[in-house]
């Protein structure tokens, strides 16, 4: 059985008329790195909330179908138990700062204090997590004095330190520069290799193509397409459904129409494009 298993999940917020998620089926294996793409309003964040237990435990609303992680059923669990297994970081880093702590080190330790980790273990776990995401030098800064990208790293570290089995990330690099994005993707990849299951919402197609195992394209609350990154991210269906695609893909698409792009498959990354065009 898959580690993450969503069966026919349909969900409506208390205030929305139509369902935001419609018959979503999704299976993710343990240690797999899955990325979700989709246009604005497709329901990506809502899906993240559903995986992390906030739908329906926090947002209420009507839900049907089943959400299972690690053999446990979300509707039969409580939120405070659920978050021990599933970690969630989302886009706006400012609102993820607890506000209860004065330094980055304390901020990252906040989650461990809450779940009662002993002091010595807490310190070494915080150190390890900061080393992993490359923010050791920020340890004594106030979380509020950081740049958006740095705050996003702190938010990610604050979740990683809790060592969830499933890591759900909703646009965690939106305020980072290319170098920061690459580093964070590298870290996430490493976590997956070590057995953490990752579901990541992203708009940066090239990075997804480089790092993710599988891509799921979400549109109007349903899964439109899923498969290997390059197959999904270069599919004509994406363009027809108003998804953003990588600039290398769209360039090569045009080039293919004019007979300049000779290969059968389209590129997502710069390297693939360069290779295809020079052949």
């Amino acid at each position: 059985m898959a580690f993450v298993n969503l069966q026919n999940v349909t969900y409506k917020y208390p205030l929305t008329k139509a369902p935001v998620l419609q018959n979503v089926n999704l299976q993710v294996d343990e240690g797999e790195f899955v990325s979700i793409v989709g246009p604005n309003g497709a329901g990506k964040s809502t899906l993240c909330y559903a995986l992390a237990g906030f739908v329906p435990h926090f947002f209420k609303g009507e839900i049907s179908g089943s959400i299972e992680v690690d053999g446990k059923e979300s509707s039969k669990s409580t939120l405070d138990e659920w978050v021990l297994n599933v970690g969630l970081a989302f886009q706006n880093p400012f609102n993820q700062i607890s506000g209860a702590k004065y330094t980055v080190f304390e901020e990252i330790a906040f989650g461990l204090e809450n779940i009662g980790v002993p002091r010595e273990e807490m310190k070494s776990r915080v150190e390890d997590a900061m080393a992993l995401t490359g923010i050791r030098d920020l340890a004594d800064r106030s979380p509020y004095s950081l740049s958006g990208g740095q705050q996003q790293r702190v938010a990610l570290t604050s979740i990683l330190v809790m060592r969830p089995k499933l890591l759900v990330l909703d646009e965690p690099t939106s305020q980072m520069d290319p170098i920061g994005t690459r580093e964070v993707f590298g870290t996430i990849r490493k976590m997956a290799e070590e057995g953490m299951t990752v579901v990541l919402v992203e708009h940066k197609m090239e990075w997804i193509a480089k790092f993710a195992d599988r891509v799921i394209a979400l549109k109007d609350g349903s899964v439109l397409l899923e498969g290997k990154p390059n197959e999904v991210l270069t599919s004509d269906l994406l363009v027809e459904n108003g998804f953003g695609i990588s600039r290398y893909t769209s360039t090569a698409r045009e080039a293919k129409k004019q007979g300049i792009w000779k290969k059968e498959s389209l590129p997502v990354t710069l390297d693939e494009a360069a290779e295809g065009f020079t052949k």
Partner: peptide, 11 residues
């Protein structure tokens, strides 16, 4: 959002 964030960290 902040409520979600601290809840996600076991508050």
């Amino acid at each position: 959002e902040r409520a979600i964030a601290i809840e996600a960290r076991g508050f």
